[in-house]
Design a protein around this nucleic acid. Structure first.
Lengths: 94, 94
DNA sequence: TCGATATTTAAATAATTATCTAAATGTATA
DNA sequence: TATACATTTAGATAATTATTTAAATATCGA
């Protein structure tokens, strides 16, 4: 889960997540939303993927990225537990 | 909110939050849970305070830290919005 | 007021992360 | 198969962050 928290600590990466929440997009489409170079965005996508927050799939020439909400929901659980909103507050790791 | 995400990206700081969730503690008590030097913990506490996640209050010789769940709930809202669990999904900043 | 205790601040260094340009890889198509 | 397009990987550098030791600040109690 540490990787997820670290991945979420960057505003560019959080924006990418929000973009992918709307719909799947190619690396190039994602890069167009930012003023950064494509390699930099590629690096951010790699961090998100490594954290398990997104998935990628090659489609011909393109690579399509999509959101994986599984880990996101784990992180959500961390907060719910903490804020007392959650059902169960038993101790977990991290 | 960026400061909050950055503050939460460190495992030591997340552990401090969990410790403060149980009860208020002095800087020294908190430091005792870690193998780091006190100045390092003081630095982490400063980051958490700067992010609005904790509050501190001097009590005589000691400084007592406590959790401020307000910002934590804002971050929680970010996740709820994203995972679709939340009531309203209108666009917000960040 | 002096000495002990609690904590932070300062200054230095090490480690990590972000970003860029240039080069490499993979795919499509003329 | 040569060329163009989409994307990543490599290598370099700059910026940020974490950590330490040493010094400073604040409070307590004799």
């Amino acid at each position: 889960m540490n990787e997820s928290f670290k991945a979420l600590a960057d505003p560019t990466r959080r924006q990418i997540i929000r973009l992918l929440r709307e719909k799947d997009r190619t690396a190039g489409e994602i890069a167009d939303y930012f003023q950064m170079t494509k390699p930099s965005i590629s690096h951010h996508l790699s961090a998100l993927k490594h954290a398990g927050l997104v998935q990628d799939e090659r489609k011909g020439q393109f690579i399509v990225y999509s959101l994986d909400t599984t880990v996101l929901e784990e992180v959500l659980g961390w907060f719910l537990e903490l804020t007392g909103t959650g059902k169960n507050s038993s101790d977990k790791e991290d």
